[in-house]
Amino acid sequence: MKILPRNMEEAQEQEAAELLERRASRLREQAETTVEEAVHWIAEFPLGEERYALSLEMLRAALPLRMVTPVPLSAPHVVGVLRFQGQVLSALSLASMLGGHGWRQDPAVLLVVDRGDGELCALDCEAIPRPTTLPASVVEAARVRAEGPVMEVFTQDRQLIHLIDLKRLFNPRSTGGRNAR
């Protein structure tokens, strides 16, 4: 059998195959890791001295707090109404909904969220939220423990985050207060 040296094309093909194999194994490893550490994406923001968050999947937009029309005679937690993508939405005071919370900066941002029943509304917020993750298992455990709309979840670095369950917050049977935890 005559042994022939590899030509340039063959060498490149082999290198490409090896490169693809390395990438594939990297991706396989990532997938395995993902399965092990399922995460829950959240939008985290400050409220007074505390850290609050809501599920990122419920967040539709973050808008500057302007063009809000106050609604006289409405419930105390209603800041006003605004127009968003052709719809009229309520702007609500999150601090008020959570039972009279102090705040550090006057809210300048509105978070447009899905209330959990398909309707949208806007919640005021002191700063633009930061997307981050929490271990899904921790969130699930907190959800089981909590009775009210706010779940206490500890991050890996032992920071406390108050995760808001919007469905419970907007459920009329829920107290909406912090003591509902």
Binding site: V68, P70, P76, V79, G80, S93, W103
Partner: peptide, 9 residues
């Protein structure tokens, strides 16, 4: 506006 709403509440 939101501070006014909070104080009012």
């Amino acid at each position: 506006l939101t501070a006014r709403a909070l104080h009012r509440a």
